[in-house]
């Protein structure tokens, strides 16, 4: 079940991007999402494109995985492209098909927006493809650390996230097991009228809830027995280390932004 979810899944390889600090990668995504909107002509989009492809090349992620990540969005991209081509009426008329006219502005705008989409998806999936979920959690916890001053439960949120990550495969397995057990008792999860199928969720969900609560209770006891009493006085085993590479990445972001300002029209 878990193995079917390929989109955005961590691919453990050894590459400069993999080795980078999750904080710098998170910052990269954040800033990239902002600066993407600076691009407004062919040159600036080309700059963004070059930047994205350098990152991809550095990550050594096979194109197949990236394409898988794009697949669900592909329809949306094509749709916006067509929308702009047919409905934006700017610039010179390129083709006149009688019932509809295609304008230069529309075509360009359509291409730009789909490129913007593609770059955004590529860079964000690059983050999840090259960083293990737990590192992302650690990075977030550190970056949001200052918010603790304003009583934001940053540590608790991070712990919740890491425990959820830990239990996802366990719960998936459990779901499959209960589904099989109820199928053996005559439940049909995959065919039959919709009403019946909705009803068949109950024998799946109730045991799943019951066991999750039991797990939560057990886990709470186990955590308490191991001395967990909140974030106070706690140290962290996982240390993040900011390296030259990370600083370089940040510099490249500055350069990227500068270039975009320089060449935008």
């Amino acid at each position: 079940m878990l193995d079917k979810m390929i989109f955005g899944r961590f691919v453990p390889l050894d590459s400069p991007i993999h080795r980078m600090d999750p904080r710098s990668k998170l910052l990269l995504v954040f800033f990239f999402v902002c600066v993407v909107f600076l691009a407004n002509n062919l040159v600036t989009y080309a700059i963004l494109g070059v930047f994205t492809f350098i990152l991809i090349a550095l990550s050594r992620i096979p194109a197949r995985f990236l394409f898988n990540g794009l697949k669900p969005i592909l329809l949306l991209i094509v749709f916006t492209l067509l929308l702009h081509i047919f409905f934006t009426k700017e610039g010179a008329v390129l083709f006149d098909l009688g019932f509809v006219k295609i304008y230069e502005g529309g075509l360009l705008e359509g291409i730009y927006i789909s490129m913007r989409f593609t770059f955004l998806i590529l860079v964000t999936s690059l983050l999840t493809l090259t960083t293990s979920p737990i590192s992302i959690t650690d990075g977030m916890e550190q970056l949001l650390g200052p918010l603790k001053k304003w009583k934001m439960p940053v540590h608790e949120l991070a712990l919740m996230m890491s425990i959820s990550l830990r239990f996802i495969p366990t719960l998936m397995e459990e779901t499959e097991k209960i589904m099989k057990a109820q199928t053996a008792r005559g439940v049909d999860f995959s065919s039959g009228p919709v009403k019946e199928r909705v009803k068949s969720i109950v024998p799946l969900l109730v045991p799943l809830f019951v066991s999750s609560f039991k797990r939560a209770e057990d886990l709470a006891i186990a955590m308490e027995a191991r001395g967990y009493r909140g974030s106070e006085g706690r140290t962290k085993y996982r240390q993040l280390s900011w390296q030259t590479l990370d600083t370089l990445l940040m510099c490249s972001l500055v350069v990227l932004t500068a270039l975009l300002f320089l060449f935008r029209s």
Binding site: K177, K180, A181, A184, V210
Partner: peptide, 23 residues
């Protein structure tokens, strides 16, 4: 394969820790 219900009526399975299927 369709209509496997007939088979499942004839072959009952008691899974490991079957109490987990109570609901």
């Amino acid at each position: 394969e369709k209509h496997l219900k007939g088979i499942r009526k004839m072959v009952g399975i008691v899974f490991q820790f079957p109490e987990h299927q109570l609901f």
